[in-house]
Design a protein around this nucleic acid. Structure first.
Length: 276
DNA sequence: ATCTATTCCTGGCTGC
DNA sequence: TGCAGCCAGGAATAGA
C-alpha cells in the first residue's frame, strides 16, 4: 500500500519522463476512481503540457499548464509507462514531446479502485487542506499538536489532517521504534516519548524512501520496480513472530479498522494517572 | 466540533 | 479442482 515513501519514489521516477510532455489523447474506462468526472477529464487533458510533478502527502500532483491532475494511488493504484504491466487500466494518456511523434503512454492502473484520478484547478491542493509534511515539521510543533488531540495515537498519526503521508505500515513501525502502545491516548504521550516518535518517524520515512519504499502487496514505482524496505519491517506483517528487540511474540489487533502490529513488551499501555 | 463506524472494491488465500 | 468465505485498508461519508 503506497504511503509517503512509496509515493515519493513514484514521483521521482515519473517526473523525468513526464515533464515537458504534451498529452495527446486520453482513454478512460468507467471506474469510480474518477468520481463522476470522467467526461470533464477527457475534455480537459488533451493538449495540456506537463510542467512539473510533485508529491502532496500521498497525492501525486501533475502540474499542467491549464490545471492540476491529482492522482491518489489508494491501495492498489499504479502509474506505469509499460502497458505490459497494466492489468486493470483505468486511464491511459498518450504523450508526446516537442516536435516529436508519440513518445509513449502513461497508464493509471488500479485493481480495487480505491485510488483517485481527477483534475483540480491550479493551486487546487490547498482545497485538500492536509496537515504538514512529517519531514518538514519541527519537533516542537509536532509535540504541541499531538498533545492537543483526542483519540488513540495510532488514529491521530493516520489522520491526514494531522500529518500528511503516514499510513498503516509506517505508523506501526514508528510506534514500535518509539516504544509506544498504539492505543495510548495522544494527549497522554509523554514529551520524551513524543520526541522519540518524532525522530523514529523521520528516520523511518527517510530510510524507506532511500530503500525504494515497501512492496507489501503489489506496489511498484513508475518504472515497475519493487521497493526493498518490506524486508526491514520490525512489526508490520510479523504477527506471532519474535520481536527483534526482546523476543516476545508480536501481536496483531485492530485499531482504527486496520490491522495493527505491536510488541506487547516493548510497547506497554501505561496510562499514568496524575499524582494528585 | 470531534471522534468513531461504515462503505467501497477485487485478488489472493484458506479450508472444506 | 472448485468454490464459498474471509481478509487487506485510504479516505469520504454518515452517525454519535
Amino acid at each position: 500500500m503506497p504511503e509517503l515513501p512509496e509515493v515519493e519514489n513514484v514521483v521521482r521516477t515519473l517526473a523525468p519522463r513526464l515533464c515537458g510532455c504534451r498529452i495527446e489523447r486520453v482513454r478512460m474506462s468507467a471506474s469510480r476512481v474518477f468520481r463522476g468526472r470522467q467526461g470533464e477529464i477527457e475534455a480537459s487533458l488533451p493538449g495540456c503540457r506537463v510542467l512539473a510533478v510533485r508529491r502532496y502527502g500521498k497525492n501525486i500532483l501533475i502540474e499542467l499548464d491549464r490545471c492540476l491532475l491529482r492522482v491518489h494511488l489508494g491501495m492498489t493504484g499504479k502509474l506505469l509507462f509499460d502497458a505490459e504491466q497494466a492489468t486493470h487500466p483505468r486511464a491511459t494518456l498518450w504523450l508526446c514531446r516537442e516536435a516529436e511523434a508519440e513518445t509513449g503512454v502513461l497508464i493509471f492502473d488500479d485493481i480495487r479502485q480505491f485510488g483517485r484520478f481527477e483534475t483540480l484547478p491550479a493551486e487546487g491542493e490547498e482545497a485538500l487542506a492536509l496537515g504538514p509534511e512529517p519531514l518538514e515539521l519541527s519537533l516542537g510543533a509536532f509535540c504541541k499538536a499531538l498533545g492537543e488531540r483526542g483519540g488513540a495515537v495510532k488514529n491521530v498519526l493516520l489522520d491526514q489532517h494531522f500529518l500528511r503521508g503516514m499510513g498503516n505500515i509506517y505508523t506501526d513501525e514508528a510506534l514500535f521504534l518509539a516504544g509506544i502502545h498504539p492505543l495510548t491516548p495522544a494527549s497522554r504521550v509523554t514529551r520524551k516519548k513524543a520526541a522519540a516518535l518524532y525522530e523514529a518517524m523521520r528516520l523511518l520515512l527517510q530510510e524507506a524512501i532511500d530503500a525504494g519504499g515497501s512492496s507489501i502487496s503489489d506496489y511498484v514505482d513508475a518504472e515497475g520496480r519493487r521497493g526493498g524496505f518490506q524486508d526491514r519491517h520490525q512489526v508490520y506483517g510479523r504477527a506471532a513472530q519474535p520481536c527483534t528487540r526482546c523476543g516476545t511474540l508480536i501481536r496483531r489487533m485492530v485499531v482504527a479498522q486496520r490491522g495493527t502490529h505491536y510488541c506487547p513488551r516493548c510497547q506497554r499501555l501505561a496510562i499514568k494517572r496524575p499524582t494528585r
